[in-house]
């Protein structure tokens, strides 16, 4: 059995998804970040709302910014968050 994906959500994405961190088995047919988002949207209302406007969702895989066509693999840490507002 392969390692699960570690999913992280921050700021209003965390509030909308209703969870900050979870581990999920890599879903069948999911090979990229964009496909993972599609799969998450299919899980329920909170996720669908969190990802309703993908232009304002930033993604990091293993703590590096990536685009939606970036691959995801078992054991990856995938984080979803809004554009950053520090400083």
């Amino acid at each position: 059995m392969s390692a699960p994906l570690k999913l992280l959500y921050f700021a209003w994405l965390r509030e909308k998804a209703g969870i900050g961190e979870e581990a999920v088995p890599t879903p069948d047919g999911v090979a990229t970040v964009g496909e993972l988002m599609d799969w998450l949207v299919g899980r329920g209302d909170g996720y669908a709302e969190a990802f309703s406007d993908r232009k304002v969702v930033r993604v990091a895989v293993n703590q590096e910014y990536v685009s939606l066509d970036h691959p995801v693999a078992a054991g990856d840490e995938v984080a979803f968050f809004p554009p950053v507002t520090g400083g």
Binding site: A11, A79, P82, V84, T85, G86
Partner: peptide, 23 residues
């Protein structure tokens, strides 16, 4: 660079409740 790259998010307490700051 810090303001557009470092993963921080501000939640402001306003009279209308908590408000996430827009980039």
């Amino acid at each position: 660079f810090l303001k557009t790259k470092a993963p921080f998010w501000k939640l402001e307490d306003t009279p209308g409740g908590g408000q996430w700051v827009d980039a």
